[in-house]
Amino acid sequence: MRSAWTAASIVALAAVVPGVASAHLMVSGMGPLYDGIDHFGLTPQDLLPVAALGLLAGLRGPPTARLLLGVLPAGWLIGGAVALAGAVPAAPVLAWATAGLFMLVGGLLAADLRAPRAAFGLVAAALGLLRGVADLAGAAPGTGAALSLLGMAASVFVVFALAASVTLPLTRLWTIVAARVAGSWLAAAGLLLAGWILRYGARVAS
């Protein structure tokens, strides 16, 4: 009886949901969903802080990792929605946000800092919101943009989870060292970026 209802509800849903998935994917080679995944993978300003935050969350343990796993993609979705609604900050703000996020997340990771879980949640929220806005800045609202945002949020989720799984089982020193070194690299890059913005202005890809 239950399986019949399951089958019926599936078919009913299918009749209602528009066929966005199949149409665009094959026609344009990569549908908006894949575009979102692509974009995330090819944008270091997105990928690196998310991976670093994942490593950090793993160092802090499962409760923090669980919290951030939810907060980060959620922040991204909200940030993206804000951008689609038209509220996009100016380019210098976004450039400084990138440098700042690099330094913050990288620095926290390098220091292997212990702090209340809520603090990390705030960092994750800030990262998600700022990068979500930056990614969708200039995109016209519509199904395409929404799907690409979904693809991005999904990629964020996956990359974060995988990064956390590297440091969660804390048994070997070298993993922690490698993670902290990666954090210091990220923070160092952020510091250089900040110097650059001060010198040459914020005409930086954000």
């Binding site: 026609v27 344009s28 908006p32 575009d35 979102g36 692509d38 974009h39 990614d135 969708l136 200039g138 995109a139 016209a140 519509g142 199904t143 395409g144 943009a145 799907l147 690409s148 945002l149 991005m152």
Partner: peptide
């Protein structure tokens, strides 16, 4: 015509 993140698409 629609814009997705990073791309402008015209059909």
């Amino acid at each position: 015509q629609y814009a997705s993140a990073g791309y402008l698409v015209r059909l």
